[in-house]
Computed example of a mutant assay.
Amino acid sequence: MILFIKLLLAHLLGDFIWQPNSWVKDKEARKYKSIYLYFHILLHAILAAVLVGEIKFIPYAILIAITHGSVDLIKLNYQKPNTKRTWFVLDQIAHILILIAIVLLYNGESINFLWFNNQFWILIIGILFITKPTSIFIKTIISIWNPESQNSHNDNSLATAGNYIGILERLFVFCFILTGHFEAIGFLLAAKSIFRFGDLKEAKERKLTEYVLIGTLISFGTAIITGLLVQALLLQLV
Rank of each mutant, 00 (worst) to 15 (best):
Q79Y: 04
P59L: 06
P20G: 00
Q79S: 05
I66C: 15
L73Q: 11
V24L: 04
Q92W: 05
F16E: 13
W18M: 06
W18A: 05
T83P: 02
Q79G: 00
D72A: 04
P81S: 06
L51R: 06
S70W: 15
K33M: 08
L8I: 06
I5V: 15
I17N: 14
N21M: 08
I58R: 13
A45F: 10
H68W: 10
G53K: 01
W18Q: 02
A29C: 02
L7Y: 05
K80F: 10
I35V: 13
G69M: 01
I62G: 07
H44A: 00
K31E: 10
Y60M: 09
Y38A: 04
T86F: 14
F39G: 10
G69Y: 04
K84H: 08
R85P: 02
K33H: 09
A48N: 14
K80H: 02
F16S: 03
L47G: 03
K56E: 14
Y36Q: 14
F4N: 01
V71D: 01
I41P: 09
I66M: 14
K25R: 08
L3G: 02
N21K: 14
D15A: 10
L37K: 12
W87G: 01
F88Q: 00
V89N: 00
V52Q: 07
S22L: 09
A29F: 01
S70Q: 13
A61S: 11
Q19W: 03
L13I: 05
I66H: 12
F57K: 00
S22W: 08
P81L: 09
P59R: 11
F39V: 02
L8E: 08
I58F: 06
I74F: 11
P59W: 08
L90N: 09
L9D: 03
N21C: 11
Q19K: 07
Q79I: 04
L76E: 12
D15L: 07
A48R: 09
Q19T: 13
A29Q: 07
I5P: 14
L43N: 07
Y32T: 15
I55P: 07
